[in-house]
């Protein structure tokens, strides 16, 4: 058995150098050379300062900002150093409670809202989802326009500019990047 253990240790050592050192470092060099932006977290730079990541959502609750998905990270929502979903089963009481709180808040700010799209009242898988559906953005246009004293058409125009269609026209779902949209709104009406 000693022979086997010795060979196992040597093979593990050799393969560790290859797959645990050479491989990740080679991929790092390659990725940093070819895709420096994406390989470093897709950071957004505005006015020479880092303003967030294009791929990581932020929490919003003021009426003048678009709101994103609910987030279950702790201790605060959208904690990008500790991702987490809610893990609520479909009958968990807090699932309905959180949905009701969000629905109430949306309707309090804009009583004309009829039906709220499901992605706006449910927790994302990561707690960091940067995007909402176009329907979830549309339902907030009136509120944001009123809070910023813009016309609904002006806000809608910005939403369209920050909407990604399905990738290559077929993959995934259409979606609106909430942080990018809110940064754009701040640029129009600080």
């Amino acid at each position: 058995m000693w022979n086997y253990l010795r060979t196992a240790a040597v093979v593990l050592g050799g393969m560790t150098v290859l797959t645990g050192v050479v491989y990740p470092l080679a991929v790092t060099l390659l990725a940093q050379a070819v895709f420096p932006g994406p390989a470093n977290g897709s950071l957004v730079v505005r006015d020479g300062k880092t303003a967030g990541s294009d791929l990581i959502g932020q929490p919003f609750s003021k009426p003048e900002y678009f709101w994103g998905r609910l987030s279950a990270t702790s201790p605060v929502p959208y904690n990008a150093a500790a991702s987490s979903g809610s893990n609520f089963g479909p009958r968990h009481p807090d699932l309905a409670k959180n949905a009701k709180d969000r629905t109430d808040a949306l309707k309090a700010a804009d009583p004309s809202i009829d039906a709220v799209p499901v992605d706006l009242v449910t927790t994302s898988g990561s707690g960091l989802d940067p995007q909402i559906s176009p329907a979830a953005a549309e339902v907030q246009v009136r509120r944001v326009a009123a809070a910023r004293k813009l016309t609904e058409e002006q806000v809608r125009e910005l939403v369209r500019a920050h909407t990604d269609d399905r990738q290559f026209g077929v993959l995934g779902e259409s979606r609106v990047n909430v942080l990018a949209l809110n940064l754009a709104l701040d640029a129009v009406t600080p």
Binding site: A99, V118, D119
Partner: peptide, 14 residues
């Protein structure tokens, strides 16, 4: 709630 998109709890928009 408009649930035409399905059960989105724990799922990502994209």
């Amino acid at each position: 709630v408009d649930q035409t998109a399905g059960n989105m709890e724990g799922k990502e928009t994209r």
